[in-house]
């Protein structure tokens, strides 16, 4: 979306954000977690979760070889099973975008690049812009930027807004995901505020975490962000995507997240255009559960490729 430039002081906007009650949020989540998912609905959920994965490698030791292997897995999750989707995207550093694009040419799988001095975001703004431009010029379909958490915590909301809006401009047709690193933001009230701010500044997706800091995509944080998306949708009719990342490693938790989306946002969000999981190890647990649903037996982890 385009930034809302009619706002000049974001503290006015943020002061209108309703507070969030931690205990009430936990109770809402507990209700979702008692939902029972069985049979074809569970299979459908597992397939859906697989199709929403941003298969990720974000390490200092990443090499073209590693990235190419991951891109192959992105297309061939488990060829022994029928009817599996591919993942939604691969997520890499800007330097690996070219490699990933080449490996995924002629597929529908997107290439996402983390950006703006991921994961800490502690670089001059000019550097962040170059970081983003590099990724966009090499063909990134999606940009996962980090916000300046220090500026946000210091109350410098205009700075954070401007930064997001500027990166959005550089993205061109690439979709912008804004990472908050909620593990550094202290409270659900802050999560609600930063979500509202990022959406106003032009985020296409909001994303919990880098995966480098714990806690990451906890249920209360995700619920709070979904609520901010719902509020924006109710006000404007405009959908914003959601990407929890970090800490979602089991099929059970992933399915609970999808049930949360179904109830808080509605089924329109239940596809990879509007919902993603940032995860590296989740895929295999989903695959194992998928096989279990089909065959009635758990298979050894050795039967599922790690990369």
């Amino acid at each position: 979306m385009q930034p809302n430039t009619s706002l000049t002081d974001f503290s006015v906007l943020l002061n209108s954000v309703a507070p969030v009650d931690q205990i009430g949020s936990l109770e809402r989540i507990a209700k979702i977690q008692t939902r029972s998912l069985k049979g074809p609905a569970k299979l459908q959920g597992l397939r859906m979760a697989l199709s929403m994965i941003d298969l990720t490698t974000l390490e200092g030791k990443d090499t073209p070889g590693k990235v190419r292997q991951m891109c192959y897995k992105a297309q061939h999750l488990h060829d022994q099973a029928d009817g599996l989707p591919t993942v939604a995207a691969v997520c890499v550093f800007p330097t690996m975008v070219g490699v990933a694009k080449a490996a995924l040419a002629h597929t529908a799988i997107k290439v996402a690049a983390v950006s703006t001095a991921f994961p800490a975001g502690q670089a001059p703004f000019e550097v962040k812009k170059l970081d983003t431009l590099h990724a966009v010029e090499h063909g990134a379909d999606e940009i996962d930027m980090v916000i300046s958490r220090g500026r946000f915590l210091a109350g410098d909301y205009n700075f954070v807004f401007d930064e997001i809006a500027a990166i959005k401009e550089l993205c061109g047709s690439a979709r912008l995901k804004v990472i908050f690193e909620t593990g550094e933001l202290d409270s659900l009230d802050q999560v609600k505020r930063v979500s509202t701010l990022a959406i106003a500044a032009g985020a296409d997706f909001i994303k919990t975490s880098t995966g480098k800091i714990q806690p990451a995509a906890t249920f209360p944080v995700v619920l709070t962000m979904l609520t901010a998306i719902k509020d924006h949708y109710d006000k404007t009719g405009q959908m914003i995507g959601m990407k929890p990342a970090g800490g979602i490693s089991s099929a059970k938790i992933a399915l609970q997240h999808l049930l949360l989306v179904k109830e808080v946002l509605g089924e329109a969000w239940l596809n990879n255009e509007w919902y993603r999981f940032g995860a590296s190890s989740l895929a295999n647990d989903l695959l194992m559960q998928y096989q279990k649903q089909l065959t009635g037996k758990y298979q050894s982890a050795s039967y599922f490729s790690i990369d």
Binding site: A41, Q44, E267, L270
Partner: peptide, 12 residues
């Protein structure tokens, strides 16, 4: 993209 129908099965 059209929305997905995802209905929970009875779990008695």
């Amino acid at each position: 993209m059209s929305s997905t129908n995802w209905n929970l099965e009875p779990s008695l």
